[in-house]
Design a protein around this nucleic acid. Sequence first.
DNA 1: GTAGGGTTAG
Length: 724
Amino acid sequence: MAWIFSLPSLITKHKKITPFEIHTCLNLKFIKHFCFSSVQHPHELDHCIKSNSFYESLIDNSTHITHLYQIHDKLIVSGLQHNRFLITKLVNGCSNIGHIFYARKLFDEFPDPDLFMWNAIIRSYSRNNMYMDVIEMYRWMRLVGLHPDKFTFPCVLKACSELLDFGLSCLVHAHIIVYGFGSHVFVQNGLVVLYAKCGCIDMARVVFDRLYDRTIVSWTAIISGYAQNGEALEALRLFNQMRNTDVKPDWISLVSIMKAYTDVDDLEQGKCLHGCVIKTGLEDEPDLLISLTAFYAKCGLVTVARSFFDQMKTPNNVMMWNAMISGYAKNGHAEEAVDLFRSMISRNIQPDSITVRSAILASAQVGSLKLAQWMDDFVRKSKYRGDIFVITTLIDMYAKCGSVESARGVFDRASVKDVVMWSAMIMGYGLHGQAWEAIYLYHAMKQEGVCPNDVTFIGLLTACSHSGLVKQGWELFHCMRDFGIKSRNEHYSCVVDLLGRAGYLDQAFVFILKMPIEPGVSVWGALLSACKISRSVTLGEYAAQKLFSLDPYNTGHYVQLSNLYASSRMWDRVAYVRVLMKEKGLIKYLGYSVIEINGKLHTFHAGDMSHPRAKEIFDELQRQERRLKEVGFVPHTESVLHDLNYEEKEENLCIHSERIAVAYGLITTAPGTTLRITKNLRACVNCHSAIKLISKLVEREIIVRDANRFHHFKDGLCSCGDYW
DNA sequence: GTAGGGTTAG
């Protein structure tokens, strides 16, 4: 009977078994053909086709559901339809190729399924991401009196962690203890993952600490758990602890630790881990290459990331494309991200929903309305036109590209709206200083029965502070409690901004002192910029000191303090801040503005003469200066002179990058065309006043996106109401 | 004879 065991290898010689071949096989011709010499007597042949291992190898080698249908038919004909082992095998086979409904049919038709079969159907649902069904089957199984075992619990725990049902999770944990799996390593690993996913990382840690025999899976579960809960440093500490044990990292553990380094942007540690990857000889592992690409891209070494990307052996790996595209987008290389997305499309590689979202995110950063429309068009023609995540990203993109109307169009077309989509639209209005629209939408959302969340309120509060609606903002802030939403630093900083801008500086300060959580960078930052508006040097200096201790290497805080001194004409202190920055080795950002003309982006720096039409641009600038003077415009010379936020002072104030972009827009577009400009820094006082007047003089709408928000200049006024 | 950990992301 030795030849029976060679059957699997005979079958696998056929790289892809066709239904016809399976059929042939089941008709014995196959066996006769291949094994004729081995079969001495007909009864041996008969024995062979009734043996489990014969069918087992057939099932294992089936790649199509029709194979399994035929095998099942043959089992029935051979009277083997009640063979537990083979039917369980078939259930597994069906679920492996995604035919969960046939697996369920086999299960339902089996008279008295045993624990093995129950585990098989539960695992089938788990593999096919049908977690509600996992729980349903688990309940049913207990109802019929079967005790779950060490194979049942990992699947059930996975389902709990995907469903994020904390109550259910606790119940299952209780079952685990009752049935005696309180120290089984596979089951406990599942608990670690479950608690980490539910945000109870401390509970996960308790389970992990009590684990007697920690495997690489246990370590990976706790390390990635910390990483997912935003505690990357603890994740890394545990990784180092693991390296002092006998447990050797494998590629999955390295992927999750790489993710932790990516989250904290720790280039040096990440490079060390890369070394570790090479030492373990796992550097060709495709998914590890994706993680390395994502890591280097996020940390700014896009060229290194790109070299990994270019080495990719399977060009159709969407995750690799996603890692590179999102890496470019996150790191200020938005145009490269869009280019890569386009090249992916042109190569006929199917993007998934994440690719599309990353590309839209990149388009939002580029700020070009033409590109935004192209992306919108792409989505409408694709299978993602109904994807709630993609639509939300589109709304955000249009708002960031200056067209809150188009954002609203996308929003109105969406058939299903969840809280994130409503919040994105509210945020969009906030960005454009249309606070009343934001508030109106908030009420409409509640009317639709959608409950606001913390993000909704960030949008609302931002909108109120951008428009100076102090009373409304204050009321909304207090509404949060009614929805059981805890205020975060972002909410507090909006309120500080709201009070501070409107001149209630003392109230803002008292508000900070009363905060139940430690005030963060954003809160003190809001106070400092409010101090600049009302020229409150003492309080501003206090805020700045807090900022310097919390976030010492952020150029922005020094710039803000310097602006505060400049607004109070304290030039010696302005100079002092400059020295302070030099000592810390901080350099100020180079300002630039981008304008889109006929779908092409033109970038200008301060005093930029490099454009082919520089001569015409400067003629236009001079013409504007003359007209501004004629209507009595007085440049804010002194403050600009010392304002570190803006481009190096040139002889003429009008050559800040946004003014050059406006001039270029005016000479290249038809009268009445709206100009759309994006600036990387905040708008300067002088340019802001000048552009307001220019919008009136040339009868144009000029929309400027600065680092914080949008300014819609029209008829001599700005939508920001001069608060920014 | 069955199983557990990970990556891209509104």
